[in-house]
Design a protein around this nucleic acid. Sequence first.
RNA 1: UGGGGGAUAGUUUAAUCGGCAGAACGGGUGACUCUGGAUCACUUAGUCGGGGUUCGAAUCCCUGUCCCCCAGCCA
Length: 780
Amino acid sequence: MQAHSPTTEPRADRASAKPRDFIREIIERDIAEGTYGGQVVTRFPPEPNGYLHIGHAKSICLNFGVAEEYNGRCHLRFDDTNPTTEDIEYVESIKEAIRWLGFDWGEHLYFASDYFEQLYQFAEQLIKDGKAYVDSLSEEEIRAYRGTVTEPGRESPYRNRSVEENLDLFRRMRAGEFPDGAHVLRAKIDMSSPNMLLRDPILYRIRHAHHYRTGDRWCIYPMYDFAHPLSDAIEHITHSLCTLEFENNRAIYDWLTENLIDPPRPRQYEFARLNLDYTVMSKRKLLRLVEEGHVSGWDDPRLPTLAGLRRRGVTPEAIRTFCDIIGVAKVNSRVEYELLEHTIRDDLNYRSPRVMCVLRPLKVIITNYPEDRVEWLDAPYWPRDIPKEGSRKVPFARELFIEQDDFMEDPPPGYHRLAPGREVRLRHSYVIRCDEVIKDEAGEVVALHCTYDPETLGARPRGRKVKGTIHWVSAAHALPAEVRLYERLFIKANPDEVEEGKTFLDYLNPDSLQILRDARVEPSVADDPPDTRYQFERQGYFIQDCVDSRPEALVFNRIVALRDSWSKQAAATEAGRGRPEPEPGSREGTASEARARARAASPELAAAYDRYLAMGLSELDADIISGDPERVAFFDEAVRDLEDSKLLANWLNNVLLGEIQDASLLSLPFSPSSFGRLVALVAGGTISSVSAKQVLAEMLQKGGDPEAIVEERGLRLIGDEEALATTIADVLARHPDKVAAYRAGKTGLIGFFVGQVMRATQGKADPRLVRTLLEKRLAS
RNA sequence: UGGGGGAUAGUUUAAUCGGCAGAACGGGUGACUCUGGAUCACUUAGUCGGGGUUCGAAUCCCUGUCCCCCAGCCA
């Protein structure tokens, strides 16, 4: 078979649509601002203590993908700081998996263990700066001293050792003078920090263990939180992308880089890890499945490991497409298995030649076909809709096998395969009719006697329609094969979510592997390369198992089944999803509580609240302003030369507070009275509220006087019909389709039109007037 | 009950710093078919709840609810 090659290019039509995400937004902003001189350097930092899975593929695609898109580079760095769990076996498998996925780190292969000396020097630097100390508390004591999430920790009695003593102790730790656990090096940050990770995090621990790369050179090893940011800095990483559970660690990351590294510093950003329905993704759980023998190994085709997916026959392209489609965001999510299946099918549909294989054979005897005759029929490898050439010969003879499922003695309505007295098309061959059903003593159907219509080879049967087409093989020529069908490994969409007294193992699917030992495949496959991916027509996509299949004993894995809209009837899936209904509860919000407390503690604020109510402000506005002395001061000064205090409160609370976020009202580049005068311009109808926001933006930037900015930029309100008429006519003329849609009933478009007019006038138009004019024009 | 994150169709994800809520997968219907596949067409369905600001809110303000992460000398 030369007509098709097993590695065909994937479909090209989706190469263009790259999903945007917040990571790429940040990177583009940094490029635009020149933060790193336009450089983009990312890294993929696995620990060599396990196999990579499809969740890692998401991270790999992100890190390598982003680097490629912005002409940067991506480093492969093994985060090997824990000698007790790591092994060279894992680094090889990880490298192979990344290469298989199609990514290349070039010369940028690094190991955190290569940085041990530099990291050690950083640690000494911290000690010399008085920012780290050797602690001699026991492990249990350290835990006890750390406090809890609600109670602050206590400082270790060793916290204030002198720099000299710390240095001496740390050097002797390195020299191997102390047993495991005798001392640790800790950062001196804050034992009462609300962020647990900042309560003097441990930087180094003593571990007299053999490291797979550094051997016995070291007996102290850096912790992740210390090694990771500094390794990033050493490699001049710009964007350090990791998963959401490291959000709290970013504080240490920043603390260390700010104390030890000159700018520009690497920055850490977090995205959501991938969760896939009906499988588990944690290293610990995968390890357990392997070690306890629930699966055959790390490359068991039911596992989400890249080794497993690869053995199953999934292509790297399908996985990359999948990673593209799922996107990158900050919400914890769980992707449906159907999406992965879709990308696999979509990829395989285009690249897999079609052949026939009968999984569960049922003997068919063509009674009107001569016993010694064999016809070698031409059968194209590709269906009509795939623009590829090539075919093979399939033998047709008196005795055939068809799929047991393709015959029913008493078929339900809508079934259009074989049944007593009915006809069916044999794929690439003749139409046959079932004349007789042969059964054994137990009443099981063991064979069918059929007759074929010699007129129907490559031709429509005359005078009747045959709806069904089924696959088949010649009994004498077909090759015996074992076929392994895989289903989801778990019966529960989220196996991590366990009921009382159960573990994730209680949700294993007992039918996740089904072995069919009596399958028959057409003889042509014997000539193909063993890594050929096929579509077994009407069944699914298959590949020979690279471990167990041999030419004389074929074993096929089902990569994925075809979509099956016939047997979808019983697709009532057990769910286990859904967002719980939010229930109204009764608890005091902390922010509003804080404001109430502030008033209770301050007669001035309490008085302000009453004063505002008397002024006519709503309770809400009065509450917000009077909860904070700065706001009161700001408001009181701004309101002095203004009649409309309610409008001022609106602008202060709903606009200004939103713009400045956490900044102080009193350190703004403009005075409260400037703000008051700005609001007065709105109140007096001198400018539109849209313009006012522009003015405010400028004032926030560089201060200034609102009236002057209005005059300078010519922002006076356009409030007469004449002046707006041409702009409106122009906008309507430019969007005839929208006008038609509006008139056809899509009135939501009014916002679009108002927006267009506002944009055309740079926000100067009176929006209310615009709206009424527009509505009048559009009505006619 | 501290701190840090998050909430848009069933699922995943968009929406040019307030201006048409859009896509993919899934579901449904139909067309086509020598694969009950593929393809095509149509369709279904959403801004966590409650207030407020605005001509206009997924986006801004207030408030409530729910989910995730952190008390390893793992990463």
